[in-house]
Design a binder for these strands. Structure first.
Lengths: 241, 241
DNA sequence: GGTTAAGTGGACAAGGCTCTCCACTTAGCA
DNA sequence: TGCTAAGTGGAGAGCCTTGTCCACTTAACC
């Protein structure tokens, strides 16, 4: 993450200020209300017009990506820190707790993270590194005999999505819920657990991070058409879902 | 749940048929695509006009309530069945597995359940009974020494919301993810777990089931206004969030 | 101070949604 | 068969979104 975001490089001083304020305001609004705050609201809170907003960030997605880029980096470095811990199990637990806590504290981030914007190119390289780092952390925690052997690194996606699920209500409620859920989950992950698990979900971290589903571009399947009843064929071609 | 829904009582034969088809189609569409299928799509698939749809169900919420009323009842009877099981822990586990499985199999239901429509009056009485039944199940499973003592009946809300979080992608993916998550969670709930938990989240079942947040009426906080910068007071009165 | 390219804001286009209105059709009954 | 209340479909109102356009303003350099 460069100290000056590359998008703000050749900007005139006033434009630069406006851009900074937009990002700052967007971060706060996304955190408080989630990703579906309208662009006009962000613009108004930043004291600019919508045109200015769209001049800096051609789509809402671009704004979201920019806003959460460094939060994503923070997640990555949490995993790095965990790898540096001499006790791999402690590292593992702290990493999960920290990441889930970050999500719980930021409504927009949790959505953005799970939704994931494939266009976040500067993130892409980091992402693969993070996945490998977490896999290594997993390996070590298992080797230390603390993490159950049938845990799959892809289960991280499962945990994160579950964590997102409990993020509702006020920030404090969300954080309390997340903390308790994570405590449950971590105690399920200890090696002493004997009950066998059903097969890992086909929800790998790669899938989640490249999913077409997104809060700003919701998944919309093509209309498969009616399967019965007197639906006339003439009505079909409306393009309606 | 009456055999003939009270909404369909004095209806003319053709109207009755249309109503039934609407509910059937809506159930299928909600299950496949979630709650945000447009009303027009439902009408089209049912082979009726939107006006007909709105004549039977004055709001989308009313339709959703009707569609999921019996699924809700099914959840309640799952808890009843669990209470009838001589082994309370087995009953407890099966209940959770079944309910989570039902949610995973039905994208719309999971949303509707967590969102919860306070207006679903006929459900209201059932709801309190279900909550008490689950509390009783909890008590027995603890008494049998199988469920960890610090489990709170309100944690059911936590589990259900977490489960909702992993419902993405195809139906099979969702069910696989849910199964694995539930397996993790149940192993965390066994009495042998020693690690103390953080305090229960202030997410009681009552709260969740009466939450103002909803998929059809998303939570919208009042705009608190900007906290800094040169926002003019004149711009404030636009009613924008 | 004057020039000018960069920056700006507000109106508006395009398209989505829920829900309403009203002129027309039809089931049910004598 | 013919009457009538019940039922109907489609157009469109009203509101929300994201994103565009263009006449105006202003920072930055001479």
């Amino acid at each position: 993450m460069p100290a000056v975001p590359e998008g703000a490089l050749g900007l005139r001083a006033d434009a630069r200020q406006n851009r900074d304020r937009i990002v700052e305001v967007a971060r706060r609004l996304f955190a408080d209300r989630g990703l579906d705050v309208p662009m006009a609201t962000i613009a108004r809170h930043a004291g600019v017009g919508v045109a200015t907003l769209y001049r800096r960030f051609p789509t809402k997605e671009a704004l979201v990506t920019e806003v959460f880029a460094d939060q994503f980096e923070a997640c990555v470095s949490v995993v790095d820190d965990a790898l540096a811990d001499p006790d791999p199990w402690r590292g593992f637990c702290t990493a999960i707790e920290k990441i889930c806590g970050m999500h719980a504290a930021d409504r927009g981030f949790s959505t953005a993270f799970v939704a994931a914007f494939p266009e976040a190119i500067e993130i892409e390289r980091e992402r693969d590194r993070a996945i490998q780092a977490f896999a290594e952390l997993t390996r070590r925690a298992k080797a230390a005999g603390r993490l159950r052997a049938d845990f799959s690194p892809d289960d991280l996606a499962l945990l994160l999505m579950a964590n997102c699920g409990v993020i509702t209500g006020s920030a404090e409620e969300a954080e309390a819920a997340s903390r308790r859920l994570v405590a449950y989950l971590l105690s399920a992950l200890r090696a002493e657990q004997a009950d066998p698990l059903p097969p890992p979900a086909r929800l790998s971290l790669h899938d989640v991070l490249n999913s077409p589903a997104s809060a700003t571009r919701p998944v919309r399947r093509a209309d498969s058409g009616p399967t019965a009843h007197q639906e006339t064929t003439a009505r079909q071609g409306t393009g309606d879902r």
